[in-house]
Computed example of a mutant assay.
Amino acid sequence: MPARLVVLVSGSGTNLQAILDAAADPAYGAQVVAVGADRDDIEGLARAERAGVPTFVAKVSDYTSREHWDRALADKVAAFEPDLVVLAGFMKLVGESFLGAFGGRTVNTHPALSPSFPGMHGPRDALDYGVKVTGATLFVVDAGVDTGAIVAQTVVPVEDDDTVESLHERIKVGERSMLVESVGRMAREGFAVEGRRVRLGG
């Protein structure tokens, strides 16, 4: 049986589309069983609907507190019984309830080489610092900001004439490839989180 993936998105869903395309091949070993979002009317949800994948929305503003939203999000995800939850451009931090349910099997990407340049502006911060290489990191989500155990990393050179936008676009290409390859391996081979280390084939 293919591994069951729930993918959470907040925007255009290009990483989601890459996973949907890969999962169309049975050899990939994973199937997207639902796509969730924190807002309505986004292209990520439209991509899921065109692919015939069920969708759901959990907007923070619809709940009385962030904790209530976090519990509701966890419940909505749990209804689809995922083996792995993929945050693909999901712009909200999940909390205690969500991690209680899906900690250790939720992954996210960050457009920098962790632990350098965490937070919202990884490409800009890398460029400002003057690094010669940056990249993207796939990690197991924990309670921190981009601090989880690292599953995979990909390196992107910084060019002398890069802008934040040009650098970020190249990072996104590497990030997407890394995400698709790594999620497929996690689905097919299994994985184990041992402290700061993630071992594929576990």
Rank of each mutant, 00 (worst) to 15 (best):
G44S: 04
A51E: 12
V183S: 01
G103R: 08
E49A: 15
S10A: 11
D21G: 01
H110F: 05
P115M: 11
H68E: 15
E169Q: 15
D21E: 15
V141F: 04
F80Y: 15
L87R: 03
V77S: 05
E43P: 08
G174A: 11
S61K: 15
P111A: 13
V9L: 10
T137G: 08
T147A: 14
R71Y: 00
N15E: 12
M120T: 14
V141A: 02
V156F: 03
M91F: 14
T106G: 04
G11C: 07
V180K: 01
D41G: 14
L8V: 03
L87Q: 04
S166N: 07
S65W: 13
G104F: 09
D70T: 06
V141H: 04
D21C: 02
V140G: 00
R199M: 04
V77G: 01
L93F: 14
L84H: 02
A78K: 10
G36Y: 03
L45K: 04
A30V: 10
V183K: 00
E67C: 06
P82N: 09
T64A: 15
T64Q: 14
E189A: 12
K59E: 14
A192V: 13
T137K: 05
V85I: 03
F102N: 02
L167R: 07
L113H: 03
E189P: 06
R47T: 07
V6C: 09
E67N: 11
A51Y: 04
T106Q: 05
P82S: 06
R170F: 05
V85Q: 02
E159V: 04
G130F: 11
I42H: 05
